[in-house]
Design a binder for these strands. Structure first.
Lengths: 125, 125
DNA sequence: ATATCGTATGAACGTCTGTTCATATATGCA
DNA sequence: TGCATATATGAACAGACGTTCATACGATAT
């Protein structure tokens, strides 16, 4: 009998590449695992209707938690939890004035992400 | 006794706004519910490590399923499922040549999203 | 002090999601 | 025709996620 059983019967194309050259190109252009992980995390955080509405609103105006909740029709608790998530990813920042917390976008790039994203989305409407 | 019990005991700031003017500005700048929903969905889809790696790779080169799987060290099945998700959001497109399916990014804007996103992320590293 | 307001947070619950496994389809080759 | 290859897909399971509810915390006002 032949020795083909020596090869682990895993998924297709175990070792060989269809286009070695292209794969090498991509390998060279690939970002660090950390960068990709952080970018995925950033997109994931923005990939929630509540959080993206909040972030988009904050890209237009500095707002307090209370006004965000009313504007979006979401509970104060949900907004606060969402803001914490956005904060942890350094997407928003806040200052406190008495008992009121005013939030803004922390990063200019995020507003650009929205612009670019809407450009993609408008082709789907 | 006073009539303050007439106000529903819900979350803070029931009816009044702290900054009516700002809220109005945001209201005017707000995108349609569909657009926001689609953008959130787009970000959500890209917010997965496997899918973002695939999409990023495809932003550099047209690749077949098999090479993507090997390049990223992910099972063929997982890649195929991921590609379907990306396809449904019109993020990637494919052509078939014999038994091989070659995928590419469907939208230029997505590559720009990556550029802008990495610019944000690099400030966190 | 005590009450109220704006905000934050922990726990809990139901839902959604990504992977794996098994299998199906379809093309190419012998 | 039969077999290997490349890809697609359905079911199922474990883990993650977002909201709600209750409550805590700090600041202001009475």
């Amino acid at each position: 009998m032949s020795e083909k059983a020596a090869q682990p019967v895993g998924d297709a194309c175990e070792i060989q590449f269809v286009d070695e050259g292209k794969v090498e190109n991509v390998r060279r252009a690939m970002k660090s695992a950390e960068a990709i992980g952080l970018l995925a995390e950033t997109f994931r955080i923005l990939g929630d209707p509540t959080r993206i509405k909040i972030a988009f609103a904050l890209s237009k105006e500095e707002l307090c938690v209370c006004d965000i909740a009313n504007l979006l029709g979401v509970s104060q608790s949900a907004v606060s939890h969402s803001l914490r998530t956005l904060r942890q990813m350094k997407l928003v920042r806040f200052r406190k004035e008495g008992k009121i917390a005013y939030y803004t976008l922390d990063d200019e790039h995020i507003a650009n992400l929205f612009d670019e994203g809407f450009r993609h989305v408008e082709e789907l409407l």
